[in-house]
Structures are given as structure tokens and as C-alpha cells.
Design a protein around this nucleic acid. Sequence first.
DNA 1: CAGTATCCGATGCGATACTG
DNA 2: CAGTATCGCATCGGATACTG
Lengths: 238, 238
Amino acid sequence: MHGYGQYCPLARGAEVLGDRWTLLIIREMLHGVTRFNELERYLPGISRSVLAQRLRHLTRMGLIEHQDGAGGQRPEYLLTEAGRDLRPVVDVIGTWGARWAFGDPDPAELDPDLVVTWISRHLAREHLPARRVVVQFDVTGSATRRYWLVIEPDDVSVCMQDPGFGTDAVFRADARTLYRVYLGELTLPEAQRSGRLDLQAAPGMAGQVPTWFAWSRFAPAVREGAARRAVRNGPDPG
Amino acid sequence: MHGYGQYCPLARGAEVLGDRWTLLIIREMLHGVTRFNELERYLPGISRSVLAQRLRHLTRMGLIEHQDGAGGQRPEYLLTEAGRDLRPVVDVIGTWGARWAFGDPDPAELDPDLVVTWISRHLAREHLPARRVVVQFDVTGSATRRYWLVIEPDDVSVCMQDPGFGTDAVFRADARTLYRVYLGELTLPEAQRSGRLDLQAAPGMAGQVPTWFAWSRFAPAVREGAARRAVRNGPDPG
DNA sequence: CAGTATCCGATGCGATACTG
DNA sequence: CAGTATCGCATCGGATACTG
């Protein structure tokens, strides 16, 4: 038995959305991800069979449409209106999670690929120059991983090799700090002052670079949650 | 492995709230239900072990507090601030469910006890007289079940025997109609006109009785969803 | 009333290999 | 690239019985 046996809008919603991984798949699709292997890449830990099963289920439920890859097109999954209307659901659960369920990260959660991808998804277009810029991220740790964000006026990509266009700015921090800054637990100036993050840029540009990044939409709620925990537990030692 | 391995507010929220039955338990607690056996009664189909496991988990996660039944007190589960702050989550998922995932009921979902309880939870206090009123519900079906709502200025109870105070009004309808009216798919006048629901009241009171009921908070969204389905499928035959 | 303990069957899910 | 097929373990969860 899969349903709750109740004729209730909340129960129905939970039946459609409550399966493991489903909300995270929706989150990715709201960010514009449309292809099977891309979804798999952005959801480390999901198995291909579960991803396929979820996509089938969401298609049957009318949340997504599967454009078959006929005629040389690549197959795509697109949100329907019902699917796009889940943005408030994702927002409100994420906001609640940030406020009330967001403690410290487990070390295994600090995937550097993921945080750089997330950062690349929340750029402040209006503050970016009208030309291509390249921002390098050095994520330190047992082995430093290096990424280049290539930000064109209408496209962003994350590379793991130097694209060779020159570099406008370099961030250097460990994964935990980068996550905390992205999520709003730490502001960029705070991270810099504490020595956990170093930002280098050409002299004329150093003031602009921080404005290019919008960070997480949940940052205010994360900060609120962190502040409340600090009050209850005493100031954050680390 | 239980978590998603991501340091993300949405993933954290989903880890806490995503277990089967959890959101429905929260829904009941937001309605003021605090006791173990009451929760079990309002969640037909949940097993005692799962209910206990969920309550333990939610307690550990800080959403509820367990007042131990020491000193002759009855044990109670109470929402903490984190738990009370889930009301927007329940609202937004229920609203989405009403709009996009709310088809016809499965016959097994038409539990008459449940709908009468739900109706009793959404009275329009401001329109009720300042004295006790009794409203009888005859839920027709293979066997008619009869309920009495005893509405006192500061208390409501559902009885399955005539409380003996006299009856101010009598609703008579099958469970499906009662659910549809409660959920807003059908207005009370529509249900009466179609002959699916009969409402009897003392002559001087007939106009007041319908104002006593506020019906479901999701009624507008349910109506919206029903209207959209009607446009796509042609007018509702039943 | 308010749970806990035990059992066992279903299935959820990750891993891997395979296909067009 | 975009999935499907198969396998086998783990755990989820419903039923029932039992306890203070």
C-alpha cells in the first residue's frame, strides 16, 4: 500500500512528493536541468534505477513531460505547469530546513564539485560586466581541487581545466568555508577577515567581484537559524 | 543510508519531514491533537510501532516535546516552535496537492468518521450562537451512520449516540458528497440543489446553519483544481 | 491509556552489467 | 548519451501480542 487512504489535499500532495529523492529532482529541474545523466551527476548517491523510476512516476503524475529523443533531438525532461508550481513548496521546505534543521555539515557532505556548481547557478547577472569573465576556485583540503567558472553574458560553465582565457579573480578556501559562505552562514567579508577565505583579483576589479555572486536563496533563513543556535549554545567557536 | 549526503537546506528539511506519515502527524498536531491514541485514531492505517518511531524521531529533531505522564498527568506530545513553524509547509503542500494532485476519491478513502471530525474542526466561531448547539449528520451509504456534533461555546465533540439535548439541524448526504462539500469541490447550495445533500433546520434557523461551517482551508485551491480539470475533460458528469 | 517487543513479508534501493 | 534489466541485501512497516 502506497497511499494514505485519506481524501485530503495534504495526503495527496505527500503521496506524489514524498518519495525519497523526489524533491531534490524537482529542485534540479527548477534550476533548468533537463537531462537524465545531468540529473544523475547533480544528485550524487541516487541510483540510475531510482532516478528512472522517479521520472516515470512524476511523468505519470503530470509534473514533468518527457520529450522523446526522436529526430536527432536529445531526450529531455521538462516541468509542466504543475511541476513549475512546486517552486513555493521547495522554497518553504528549504526555508524551514535552513531555520530549524540545519546544523553543521557532515564531512562527507562537503562535495567540492557540488558547491562550485551551486555557486555558478546563482550569479548576479545585473552586476556582471557585459564581457566574458573567468573566476577560479581553489578548494583546499587533503588535495586542492581547482575549478574555473567561465561566465559569458548568456552562459555559465564550470571547467576543471584552465580554459586559457586568463583569470579575473581567484577564490581560495576549504569546502566547508565555501559552503558556509554560499549558504549565508558566513558573509564573504567575515570569511576573509577570519582568514578562512582568500580572494585575489586585479586591483581595479577587487571591489566588484563580490557583487557578482548572489549566493543561496536560503541564505537569510540559514543566518537566522545560525543566530538562534548561537544564542542557545553560546558563540560559535569554529 | 538515510540522508542525502548534501549540505543543503532543502535536503535537510526533506530528511526530517520526508518519512512516511510524518506530515500527516504534523497536520494532526497543528490541529491540537496531543495524545498517542488520539493520533492513532485520526490516522487510520498507521501502525502503533511506526507512530511511536515517528514521535521519537520528531522529538529528537526538536519538532515536538514529550511531556512525560508523571504526577498523574496524562502524557502529551506538544509542538515546539520549530514544529509550529511547519504550518506554512503543510499549507503550501496541501494547496499544491489540491490544485494538481486531487482527482476523485477512491471509495476506500471515504471514511465517514474522518470527514465528520474534520468538519467539526473548522467551525466559524464568530457565526455560532453563544449557547450550545447540536448538529446531526446522517452519512448515508450501505449502512447509514449517524453523528451528533455538540458545539459548546468553548468545546466541540463528536458523538455517535444522541446526546439528548435536542437537535438544531440535520445534514443528510453520502460520504462522497460530504467530503466534496467539506473540501470545496461543491458548495453547500450546489449540493442541495442537486439533491445530493439535504439540510433540515428549525424555520427560524435555516438561514444561519450554513454560516456555522468554515469547511476546509484548502477549499479555494480544490475548487481551482476542479475547475481546471473540468475545462480539460469536459463538464463533470457525476 | 500509552506505549514496547517481536515477527516476518514486501519493497525500496544501490550496484552492476547490458543495450540501442 | 540515455536509459533498462537483474540481483540481492537492508529496512520499512503492518500485525499482533504484551506490559506498566
